[in-house]
Design a protein around this nucleic acid. Structure first.
Length: 262
DNA sequence: ATGCCAGGTAACACCTGA
């Protein structure tokens, strides 16, 4: 077992289109665990062989056209559970968790966007956040090492968006969304990136349109939240902007942290 | 502010995203 492991979350916006970028990035960034979102494919269509050849075990919770999440790990992935507890009617593939390196339980989550305001989608977002927080709370009752990473689709503060005024009526900035995100943090979780970087205007997403990337008009919406015992082992964290600048990029870029496992 | 971009599905247009 390595002394420290690097864990990354990345919303890839279609695993099929992004495969060349993913393989290049796996080689250069050499993460030990990867939490992927927005696969946009069913399990059978996932490019399993190519990613296994890069040295990863794979667990998938796929869906046609929309959503889809996965865990990649250089270690075996054990005790995998698909779907967020709390609503058996929820058919959207937005949550998967499993145990990596024999001791760390990680989740890859794709929180609903929730736009437009006033729609059922916003209600679904808030209900999903309530379910996630409840699951986190019950999981934290034991002392298991836990990490919840993914696209949270929440802009936590006005410093996490290039132009707050443009987002006043957006589901990502609503007080209801922000309060629920804070409530998760207040369970005792540590935002890995913010443990090392308190500068405002650090982003993980840039819209494809209107030259957002070139103008650094971004949003910070991708997070790695760590339970207390694993947060104590946090060595470093950051945002890897390289993949966003490539040809055929995802609109999100990877967010990573490094953890002492021993 | 939106759907100017991007991806998917299906089918030569429409849905979703944040």
């Amino acid at each position: 077992m390595p002394n420290s492991i690097k864990i990354t979350t990345w919303n890839i916006n279609s695993v099929k289109v992004r495969l060349p970028n993913i393989l290049l990035w796996l080689k250069e960034a050499a993460p030990d665990v990867v939490l992927l979102q927005e696969l946009k494919c069913v399990d059978e269509k996932f490019p399993r062989m190519e990613i296994e050849d890069a040295g990863y075990n794979i667990e998938i919770h796929g869906q046609k056209t929309y959503n889809g999440v996965a865990i990649l790990s250089k270690s075996p992935i054990e005790d995998v559970k698909r779907g967020l507890p709390g609503d058996t009617d929820d058919e959207q593939a937005r949550y998967i968790e499993g145990t990596v390196f024999g001791k760390l339980r990680v989740a890859s989550l794709y929180l609903p966007n929730g736009n437009p305001m006033g729609s059922d989608k916003f209600k679904y977002k808030l209900a999903w956040m309530d379910r996630l927080k409840a699951h986190m709370a019950s999981s934290l009752m034991d002392d298991e090492l836990r990490l919840w990473g993914g696209d949270y689709n929440v802009i936590p503060t006005d410093s996490d968006v290039y132009n707050p005024a443009a987002f006043t009526n957006d589901a990502l900035t609503q007080p209801e969304s922000r309060a629920r995100f804070r409530a998760m943090i207040h369970l005792g979780l540590t935002d890995a990136f913010r443990a090392f970087n308190t500068l405002p205007h650090q982003y993980s997403y840039w819209d494809y349109q209107a030259g957002a990337w070139a103008k650094d008009n971004g949003l910070l919406i991708d997070f790695l939240l760590l339970s207390p015992l694993i947060a104590d082992k946090l060595c470093s964290a950051g945002i890897d902007k390289n993949p966003r600048g490539r040809e055929k990029p995802s609109d999100h870029t990877p967010v990573w942290c490094e953890i002492e496992l021993n």
